[in-house]
Design a protein around this nucleic acid. Structure first.
Lengths: 141, 141
DNA sequence: TCAAGTATTTAGATTATATCTAATATGACA
DNA sequence: TGTCATATTAGATATAATCTAAATACTTGA
């Protein structure tokens, strides 16, 4: 599909467009479910070329570092991965652990504890960055 | 300190107030850092009575199920645990993985990508509950 | 084209995190 | 006290992720 676009975005981030890395990226874009590393590893190995588990993890780490992919931690389950496209929120199912995207503009109008057919138990803002201990000091210190 | 309060809240949730379970709860309340299961295991074992790793995990699971404690998943690191007191948000440090509480009323006024001395890289709303597949169908089905 | 350097991949070992098992202990209460 | 459900335990096991060191594949410069 947008093979060239994938190549562009990889190389634009200083990553070679290797077959294995391309396969990870393509799989994530094609299925915008939120697969685990293990699912991605399996999927890319159903097609050629084969990729080892280490490579799958390496590539996911590289893609996350490059800002092309987001890792979503889920309690008690394997992390899930998500191409970073439009800004969006996440919905995580208590029972199956599935992670769903929720459009940014859909979020402000939740009605009575539900969003569509979902049942929302809790909702939490998570900030990520550097804590006061880790943030670089200003020149005054 | 509020030994009686801890006992009350455990028993109010149908959990026996065993020494091991009490120790987990007391540790979480005393240090409102957000320790990992391993840290809690170590800490409660520095004091008597000794508790096994399985018990620590069992108790944490029970406390989470009872709604007394919250589990916070962190990418690439062990989960962290938090007594559920006042409603609050979380800040997760990219570098050290530390989880900090952020008062509910402090959040609406972030200034220029920072909250206090923290450096905020991203912020995301996470909804948890049952997805459309897992939510029970209405009687019409 | 080749040589040399860098990035990437690989299988399998290893680590880290969490859960399971089955035996034992504890507490509630009839 | 006896009985039964709940809780604890050590150690084995499962699961998730990373590391290692060697091989391979690119890239660059001549």
């Amino acid at each position: 599909m947008d093979a060239e676009a994938i190549k562009q975005s990889l190389e634009g981030s200083g990553l070679r467009c290797t077959p294995q890395r391309y396969a990870v990226m393509a799989f994530l874009m094609e299925h915008n479910r939120h697969p685990t590393a293990a699912e991605i590893f399996e999927a890319v190995n159903r097609a050629d070329p084969r990729s080892s588990r280490a490579t799958t993890y390496n590539n996911l780490r590289d893609l996350v570092q490059a800002g092309l992919v987001r890792e979503v931690a889920v309690e008690g389950r394997a992390a899930r991965f998500d191409v970073k496209g439009m800004r969006h929120h996440h919905f995580i199912c208590d029972r199956c652990g599935e992670v769903e995207d929720m459009a940014w503009y859909d979020v402000p109008k939740p009605a009575k504890g539900s969003l569509g057919k979902r049942i929302v138990r809790e909702c939490e803002l998570i900030f990520r960055g550097l804590c006061t201990k880790c943030a670089p000091r200003r020149a005054s210190g």
